[in-house]
Simulated scan of single mutants.
Amino acid sequence: MRVYLPCTLPALARVATVGELGPAPLTGYAVTPALIEWYVSGDTEELEYVALTEAARASLRMLAADRTDGVEAPARRVVIAADVPDGDVSAGVDLEERARVRLAVAVPLDRIAAVHVDDESATGDVEAALAALPAADLGDDDAKFVLDGAEANELLWYATQEIPDLVG
């Protein structure tokens, strides 16, 4: 099963160093039965894009948490796409996040299919989204609009061989 795992550049550097994303359990996003039922008209590619987008939103929150903890993290969202055995994944029934899944084990580097990362040109939009996140969580429509501005930036695709260049 293809799973999209939110990440940050510092966390991706750890993956490159230790050879896995972990420790488990991990929260990810995938094409779940609940997502398929909700998005009836979508094909597999569209559903995977929804899961990727949900993971990018979670990456923004991870980035905010890193910064709160004093971690110097560039304002770029990161999503790891991994192919994992179905038995390692369990889907919830959260109606707000239909694509959310839990992984019971760490994800080894050889299961990572690709990495999706914001282009450096998205940094301003991501910084603005980070600043707007608390107000958006309280329901502020203007702040939600700022979050949408970050989501308007498409994540770029990188092969696993390019991870050292991304984190170097």
Rank of each mutant, 00 (worst) to 15 (best):
I112S: 00
D94H: 08
I112M: 07
A104P: 04
E120T: 07
R100Y: 01
A75R: 05
A75V: 02
R77L: 07
A122G: 11
A99V: 02
D119G: 14
L103M: 11
V79T: 12
L109F: 15
A104D: 13
V105F: 05
D118P: 07
R100Q: 10
P74C: 02
A122D: 07
S121P: 05
R77W: 13
E96P: 00
G87Q: 07
V78C: 00
R102L: 14
P108R: 06
T68A: 15
V107H: 00
L63D: 06
L103S: 00
R67C: 12
I112D: 00
E54L: 04
A65V: 09
S121Q: 09
D118R: 02
A114Q: 14
V71S: 01
P85L: 06
V71Q: 07
A113F: 08
V107C: 02
R98T: 15
A122K: 06
D86G: 13
D94V: 04
T53Q: 15
G92V: 00
L109K: 12
A104L: 04
A122H: 09
A56H: 13
A55P: 11
V105L: 09
D66N: 15
D94C: 10
A91Q: 04
M62Q: 13
T68R: 15
V84N: 01
L60S: 10
A75P: 01
D119A: 15
D66T: 08
R100V: 01
A106P: 14
L95N: 04
R67G: 14
L95E: 13
D69S: 12
S90H: 04
E54Y: 09
A64S: 15
P85R: 03
A99P: 05
D88T: 10
S121V: 13
A55I: 07
A75K: 11
D86R: 12
D69M: 14
V79K: 02
I80L: 12
L95Y: 13
T68G: 13
V101R: 00
R98F: 03
A56E: 03
A75W: 15
V78F: 05
R102M: 10
L95P: 05
A106Q: 05
E96I: 07
R77A: 00
P74G: 00
G87L: 10
R100W: 00
A58C: 07
V115P: 02
E97K: 03
H116T: 07
H116K: 04
I112H: 06
L60N: 01
A104N: 06
S59A: 15
D66V: 08
D66H: 12
A99L: 03
R76E: 05
T68H: 06
V71R: 08
D94Y: 05
